[in-house]
Measured scan of single mutants.
Amino acid sequence: MTEYKLVVVGAGGVGKSALTIQLIQNHFVDEYDPTIEDSYRKQVVIDGETCLLDILDTAGQEEYSAMRDQYMRTGEGFLCVFAINNTKSFEDIHHYREQIKRVKDSEDVPMVLVGNKCDLPSRTVDTKQAQDLARSYGIPFIETSAKTRQGVDDAFYTLVREIRKHKEKMSKDGKKKKKKSKTKCVIM
């Protein structure tokens, strides 16, 4: 069974824990209790493949930012979460993405942009803004509501699919490099 290491990042209060708990335990946590770091595991079937999701729910508070490099190193894919009623959390996505790329030393890291709290009427981040940002990053965008469960499975499952595509691409690139290195030079 394939294991996928997913990391949920975003500013404090955007609903990272609520999304994760909704996926794992099928219930909505409405009281806000700032996370330092929590880890969850769940076995699911995605596109006919049974897999184990190892999900790291991270601290959004700035005082825990020193811990970010460590979990970013171990993560295979990242859910970059903002709240649709919090423009600052949307603007912060850029910083999370840049930090992930720096730590992973790669421009090509599996990510999904997630606009959470889409059940709320007080939207300050337009869907088109988020779609445009995701398009500019070359990553999928999904709106979710941890409260109603809308888009929750889709967000995590899409990230797994992005990781699969990335692994497939990397193995193809690896095979191309191996083929090239088999060419021999004969000096007579």
Results as ranks from 00 to 15, higher is better:
Val8Ile: 12
Val14Phe: 07
Thr2His: 13
Arg41Lys: 04
Val44Pro: 08
His27Asn: 13
Asp47Pro: 04
Asp33His: 04
Cys51Val: 13
Thr50Pro: 13
Leu52Ser: 08
His27Met: 15
Thr35Gly: 15
Leu19Lys: 12
Asp54Ser: 07
Val45Phe: 06
Val7Asn: 05
Leu56Cys: 13
Lys42Gly: 05
Thr35Leu: 15
Phe28Glu: 03
Gly10Thr: 00
Asp57Met: 01
Tyr40Met: 13
Leu6Arg: 01
Val7Thr: 06
Lys16Tyr: 00
Glu37Ala: 06
Glu37Gln: 06
Glu37Arg: 01
Ile46Gly: 09
Asn26Leu: 04
Gly13Glu: 05
Glu49Pro: 07
Tyr64Phe: 09
Lys5Ile: 01
Tyr40Phe: 12
Ala11Met: 14
Asp38His: 02
Cys51Ala: 09
Val9Ser: 04
Gln43Asn: 11
Gln25Cys: 10
Glu3His: 10
Ala11Ser: 08
Ala18Val: 04
Ile46His: 10
Ile24Gly: 05
Tyr40Trp: 11
Thr2Tyr: 06
Asp54Cys: 02
Ile36Arg: 00
His27Phe: 13
Asp30Ala: 08
Leu52Trp: 04
Tyr40Cys: 05
Glu31Val: 08
Leu19Trp: 13
Ile24Phe: 07
Gly60Trp: 11
Leu52Met: 10
Gln61Val: 09
Ala18Ile: 05
Gly15His: 01
Gln22Cys: 04
Ile46Phe: 07
Glu49Asn: 09
Gln43Thr: 12
Val45Gly: 12
Gly15Lys: 00
Asp47Gly: 09
Thr2Ile: 05
Ile24Ser: 10
Phe28Pro: 03
Gln61Glu: 11
Val7Gly: 04
Glu63Phe: 03
Leu56Glu: 14
Phe28Ile: 05
Arg41Asp: 01
Asp38Gln: 01
Arg41Ile: 02
Val14Lys: 10
Ile55Met: 14
Glu62Thr: 08
Pro34Asp: 08
Ile46Val: 13
Lys5Gln: 05
Gln22Val: 02
Glu63Leu: 02
Lys42His: 06
Phe28Asp: 01
Ile21Glu: 03
Asp47Thr: 05
Ala11Ile: 11
Gly48Ala: 07
His27Ile: 11
Ser17Glu: 00
Val29Gln: 08
Asn26Tyr: 07
Gly60Tyr: 13
Asn26Glu: 12
Leu56Thr: 13
Lys5Tyr: 01
Gln25Leu: 14
Tyr64Asn: 10
Gln61Ile: 09
Glu3Cys: 09
Asn26Ala: 13
Leu52Pro: 05
Pro34Cys: 14
Val14Cys: 12
Tyr40Ile: 04
Tyr64Ile: 06
Glu63Ser: 08
Asp38Ile: 00
Asn26Ile: 03
Leu53Arg: 01
Ala59Pro: 06
Glu49His: 09
Val44Ile: 10
Ile24Thr: 10
Thr58Lys: 04
Gln61Met: 07
Ile24Asp: 01
Glu3Ser: 10
Tyr4Leu: 14
Glu63Val: 03
Ala18Asp: 09
Gln22Gly: 14
Asp33Arg: 04
Gly60Val: 15
Leu52Thr: 12
Val14Arg: 06
Lys5Cys: 02
Cys51Asn: 11
Gly13Thr: 07
Thr20Phe: 02
His27Gln: 14
Lys42Cys: 05
Leu56Trp: 12
Cys51Phe: 12
Val29Arg: 05
Thr50Glu: 11
Ala18Gly: 12
Ser17Lys: 00
Gly48Met: 04
Asp33Ser: 03
Asp38Lys: 01
Leu6Gly: 02
Gln43Phe: 06
Gly48Ile: 03
Asp54Val: 03
Tyr40His: 07
Lys42Arg: 11
Lys42Asn: 06
Thr50Leu: 09
Val8Tyr: 02
Ile36Ala: 05
Thr20Val: 06
Gln61Gly: 07
Ala59Tyr: 06
Gln43Ser: 11
Leu56Arg: 09
Leu6Glu: 01
Pro34Lys: 13
Tyr32Cys: 10
Ser17Cys: 02
Gln22Ala: 08
Ser17Asn: 00
Thr35Glu: 15
Leu53Thr: 10
Ala18Cys: 06
Glu63Met: 03
Leu6Phe: 10
Thr35Arg: 15
Asp33Ile: 02
Asp38Asn: 02
Val9Tyr: 07
Val9Gly: 03
Leu19Ile: 10
Asp57His: 00
His27Asp: 11
Val7Asp: 00
Asp30Asn: 08
Asp38Val: 02
Leu53Met: 08
Tyr32Ala: 10
Thr58Asp: 14
Val29Cys: 12
Ile55Gly: 11
Arg41Met: 03
Glu37Asn: 04
Gly60Glu: 15
Phe28Thr: 03
Val8Ala: 03
Asn26Met: 07
Tyr64Glu: 13
